[in-house]
């Protein structure tokens, strides 16, 4: 199996460390309910087919990569830098490597405080 690092190109699988399902990139807020932590750490969709997971280019450029692949055929469908993925964590949004605070909506729950 070979993976295409968005920065280094097509590389041997041995250069990469598999971390787990993409959900590991969405760490719950510090004050989140225990169920959210159980979801994050333990419960998995575990699909037989298309899945998205996190790989670290350990013997390479050290980039975190979101790999879309087929767990039945081992076909790699897409790779992208994790920093290119927009995701919301608490009241912050990561986008293209930047961390921006989302203006709180009036009346919305704010979640836990982050330092």
């Amino acid at each position: 199996m070979r993976l295409t690092c968005p920065l280094c190109g097509d590389r041997d699988r041995r250069e990469f460390h598999y971390y787990g399902a993409e959900v590991y990139a969405d760490r719950p807020d510090a004050g989140a309910a225990l169920d959210a932590w159980d979801d994050y750490l333990h419960l998995r969709d575990n699909p037989a087919g298309e899945t998205r997971d996190l790989w670290y280019h350990e013997i390479g450029c050290s980039a975190w990569i979101v790999v879309t692949r087929d767990t039945v055929s081992h076909r790699i469908l897409q790779t992208a830098l994790l920093t290119a993925r927009q995701r919301q964590v608490g009241k912050f949004v990561y986008q293209e490597g930047d961390l921006r605070e989302v203006p709180a909506k009036p009346g919305a729950a704010t979640g836990g405080e982050r330092p």
Binding site: G20, A21, D39, H42, L43, R44, D45, N46, P47
Partner: peptide, 16 residues
């Protein structure tokens, strides 16, 4: 296990 448990609406603490 994950596929059959999903038929009952469950997500399991399992990765294959």
């Amino acid at each position: 296990s994950s596929q059959v448990a999903a038929m009952a609406g469950m997500r399991l603490p399992i990765e294959s």
